[in-house]
Design a protein around this nucleic acid. Structure first.
Lengths: 232, 232
DNA sequence: TGTACATCAGTGAACGCGCGTTCACTGATGTAC
DNA sequence: TGTACATCAGTGAACGCGCGTTCACTGATGTAC
């Protein structure tokens, strides 16, 4: 029967969801190295081997968490971007930056899993590539729209990127920000890495004993980086 | 006898050095979560409990590795900075950036230990604070010297940092770049976090399937960030 | 210079713990006729 | 609608492993008189 097969499937999907949720909670407490199938099984009220009906190995569970993480961050960024005036490109850039920082502060271990040290011995499969770009796609759309609207007025005196980067930039442009010239792609990348560099510095403790006014510093740095791209 | 006491002390110092070196080699292979006292003891040809004559716990060994790491990176940066023309501030900035990237690529797990995800459950003691700033001090000296020489010509159109950051910047200025105005401190911080953001992106896999010409991109981004600070 | 004592490095056994993964099994749920 | 069979979820025991840390001990090295 079709309905009953899908009943079994629904239970299965629900339990799979529960497992990843418990795993995510444990990740939030212990960090990735402390994530254990046995602990998850214990909290599920299952015997440890039962987990293998749902995930063939610990690495596959990690992969699920990574994909979920990228999607959660991506969605937070999408929501933040959609909340403002679509024509206010500077505001959208700042909203995206704040969404990234806000999500990272709320989910430090998940952020560390996505943008921190790689987990030793873990090789990310191809399935993570799409979700990993979700936030970047939002960013690209902002730059693209701003460029098309003629709203980018980058400051003078900055050198053009060397021709050897044309191929990389071409690939990037195709996926992220079609129609945007190399010069803008280069500045865009600078700002984007600067965003994550700043968030990582704060989250990973490099501002300890140094910077107290972290939100103010963050906003100022992001405005500066936005200005570099031509947003004012 | 003084000479013989120091003989025992010399042996002790030598063995301590050997332990940290073996630990560092294991760190390089396995990463921080895989570092184990027992494995170190095995490679030393000792019984595992003997390590406790030298380090009271695994965390203390980790601390030693972290301090050594900051010092190694700091020294690499110092050497790179000293190699060029002291009056060529842009060249010095670029040399420092390349030294950081070069060291990170050569010691990825050590870099991850210093600038990646925090080790869960590990609290860095106060002894790490000094060495952690060693590279930053070099950077600060360059900016300070460039500023004093009147060699900084930052681009126009960038906003000044908000007054709420004055206190943080004052503290930072005192330690790192005395006599440098807030405006320059702010841009300097932006460039510095951008440097580590770019290195981390490359090392932690964010450029996979995206950027192939990593050295060229790195140099271009660093030149751009240097230009932002006023180096041309 | 020689002897009694104190310091220290290293041993070996043990405690108590947790982990990922495999495998033969039971029993419930779904399918086909 | 009822029965025989196939699929699948979950069990329980086991394998084989590694870890940090403690503790009573032996024996060598250094110190003081």
């Amino acid at each position: 029967m079709n309905a009953s097969r899908s009943a079994r499937e629904r239970v299965r999907a629900e339990l799979t969801r529960e497992i990843t949720e418990i795993a995510r909670r444990q990740l939030a407490v212990e960090g990735a190295p402390g994530l254990s199938l046995r602990a998850v099984a214990r909290e599920m009220g299952m015997v440890s081997s039962a987990i293998y009906r749902y995930f063939p190995s610990r690495d596959d569970l990690l992969t699920a968490l990574i994909i979920d993480g990228y999607n959660a961050l991506g969605e937070a960024v999408e929501v933040a971007d959609a909340a403002g005036d679509p024509g206010d490109f500077t505001g959208r850039w700042l909203a995206v930056c704040r969404a990234v920082r806000g999500w990272a502060l709320a989910h430090p271990h998940e952020y560390a899993l996505l943008y921190g040290s790689p987990v030793p011995g873990y090789q990310a499969p191809q399935d993570t590539v799409g979700p990993a770009l979700r936030d970047t796609v939002v960013y690209g759309k902002i730059i693209e729209a701003a460029h098309k609207a003629g709203a980018l007025t980058p400051p003078d005196g900055f050198p053009a990127p060397p021709p050897v980067l044309a191929e990389d930039f071409g690939r990037l442009r195709a996926v992220i920000m079609p129609g945007v010239p190399d010069d803008v792609v280069a500045r865009g990348l600078t700002a984007w890495t600067g965003l994550f560099g700043t968030v990582s510095f704060e989250l990973f403790g490099q501002f300890n004993n140094t910077i107290d006014e972290r939100e103010a510093l963050f906003d100022h740095v992001m405005i500066t980086l936005g200005r570099l791209v031509g947003l004012r």
